[in-house]
Computed example of a mutant assay.
Amino acid sequence: MPLPIFQFEEYMTMKAKQVNRALDEAVPLQLPVKVHEAMRYSLLAGGKQLVEGDESSAMPIACALEMIHTMSLIHDDLPCMDNDDLRRGKPTNHIVFGEDTAILAGDALLTLAFEHVAAKTFNVSPDLVLQAIAELGSAVGSKGLVAGQIVDIDSEGKNVSLAELEYIHVHKTAKLLEASVVCGAIMGGGNMIDIERVRNYARCIGLLFQVVDDILDVTKSSTELGKTAGKDLVSDKATYPKLMGIDNAKKLATELVAQAIEELAYFDDARAAPLYHLANYIASRQN
């Protein structure tokens, strides 16, 4: 099925600027300076944004998701977690500000995310705002991102099945992407069928993101990735190429793109065009 004609690069650039502008306003440099400087260092570093809201009513949830996403990256890079010193081509937060400040900056971003949605969302039914907040909490908590992270840590150096690896990445990676798309559907007043279809779509592209990430980790350099390459191999972590081989991992990526696009067939092509192109963008990314 040919993709709808859509200027995806221009769309992404425009939306990224809008979200970054809103994030800059949401987290000004203020007292205490050190923690706000650390928050802004990672939050405004660029890279892959999860939500591209183009309505003022959706912007607070877009900012909240980016705050949560950034928190997860700050904490994921800590020595007690993945112990990384490079993120988006820059030294990781704890390298610049110290572990104590990095932890607190992540905590501050996480709590600010929920405050921001509650305090700054206008022209949306309170019931829908509550539904979106619940979706956010579920995605990042002990049944979402935290679940994936703890199982990932416990699995290092162990023999992990494909089913266990999928559990890790459905929770660690796909849940936050799922929340991004689902919260957009909620804020837009989507019905239950709309929400479940975009949820399934997001789960596919969330897994796709990780499969591609695993492939890039063993095929690209640190300079090309903007983060440390080959770390999964060094730490003996389970990855899709390790369990399936690179060729089968690439085949899985192709299947996940097809599944994601199939979920979008229910929607109007023009309105779903950004999501069509997002799936292909994730599949073809090089960093």
Rank of each mutant, 00 (worst) to 15 (best):
S155M: 05
K158G: 10
H171V: 06
L176T: 06
L165H: 10
N159H: 15
D154Y: 08
L176S: 09
S155R: 04
I168M: 07
H169S: 04
G157Y: 02
A179T: 11
D152R: 01
V182H: 04
A163K: 15
D154V: 04
K172H: 00
G157A: 07
S155T: 05
L165N: 06
I150A: 11
V160Q: 02
I153Y: 07
K172W: 00
Y167M: 13
S161P: 10
V182F: 06
T173F: 03
S161D: 11
I168K: 03
A163H: 10
K175P: 06
K158D: 14
I153D: 08
D154I: 04
N159S: 15
K158E: 15
V151S: 09
V170A: 12
H169Q: 09
V181D: 04
E156R: 13
S161C: 10
L176Y: 10
N159G: 15
D152Y: 04
V182T: 11
L176K: 02
S180E: 13
E178C: 14
V151P: 01
T173C: 08
V151F: 05
E178R: 12
E166N: 15
S155Q: 05
L165R: 08
N159A: 15
S180K: 01
K158F: 12
K175E: 14
T173P: 01
L177C: 11
K172V: 03
S155D: 13
I150D: 07
V151G: 00
I150P: 04
L177A: 11
V151D: 09
L165M: 10
G157T: 02
S161I: 11
A163Q: 14
E164I: 04
E156S: 01
L162A: 08
S161E: 12
H169F: 08
D154R: 10
K158N: 14
S180H: 12
I150T: 13
A174F: 01
L177F: 13
V181T: 02
N159I: 14
L165Q: 06
K175W: 03
S161F: 07
K172C: 02
H171S: 14
H171R: 12
V181K: 00
V170F: 12
L165P: 03
V170K: 10
D152W: 00
A179P: 01
S180L: 02
V151Y: 06
V170P: 02
V182R: 02
I153T: 06
A174L: 01
I150W: 05
L176E: 09
L177I: 14
S155H: 06
D154P: 08
